[in-house]
Amino acid sequence: MRKNKDYHLTEPTWCKGCGIYSIFAALKKAAVALNQDPEQFVIVTGIGCHGRLNNYFRSYGFHALHGRALPVASGVKLSNPSLSVLGISGDGDAYSIGLGHFIHSLRRNINITYLVVDNRIYALTQGQTSPTSEPGFVSVSTPYGSKELSLNGPKLALASGGSFIARGFSGNPTQLSTLIEKGMKHRGFALIEVLSPCVTHNKVNTYQWFKKNTYNLDNDSDYNARDKMKAWKKLSKEKKIPLGLIYVEKRQTYEDVVFQKEAEPIVFNDLRVDVPRLEKIMEKFK
């Protein structure tokens, strides 16, 4: 059995009290629970405070460009589906500069897990308004208040064909690690948005605020996460934010569709030049 320390590379240096600490811990806990081999584990991050995670977590790591974690993660997974691939982005990375990739990745349903760390602010660049900031949100970039509606990632994910949609909260690490574990087990694209307070720049959406404004679907025995309409209704209610597994369905993955059954991963292909076979193809240029 693997242990927590198998995934621990160095001590993180995020701000004291940052929500990402619990995500880091939950991720390690989920990896232990899944007995995930660090050498078969690729974590692709975007730009933002979350992007430092690769420096602390022991696995293969790829710190990609701003907004591009998902295309890189997709390229990794499709070339070698035997690897476990996890992408991490912030709310700016996933819902602003990388939004196109977000929607199309949901549509494709490649078997990767995607954590969106939502602190409702651009923290690494010192506190600008983000797409998940609420209307009227005052920050250095919107001193007179944000003039735009905030973006609802899981709702957008449901509309885009997401096959696993969950929302966790840094203030509830036990539920979070369970959600990550489930997401990693899910065959297909698993989105887990994590509400995660920024203690330095966001004085509105604090731990207290999130506690007050969320409720847990996992405690609701009537809720059926396989019911798309119910999920849509829950995500459409504006007052309180649902946490837990919101929606899950069985759907063919992109890999199921594009690769032949039991095909070797692309990276294990024998690349030696098959002259007779290529000669035959060349004959078609006539």
């Binding site: 907004g67 390229g75 990794v76 499709l78 070339s79 990739h101 199309h104 692309i266 690349l271």
Partner: peptide, 28 residues
């Protein structure tokens, strides 16, 4: 030839997918 062609949402995704694939060991 057991290879893959992906139509991406834009050229940003195309090149970044190619980067992911090459990093993993595919000729991309």
């Amino acid at each position: 030839f057991n290879g893959l062609v992906v139509q991406t949402e834009d050229e940003l995704a195309a090149l970044n997918m190619v980067l992911g694939a090459s990093y993993t060991g595919a000729r991309a």
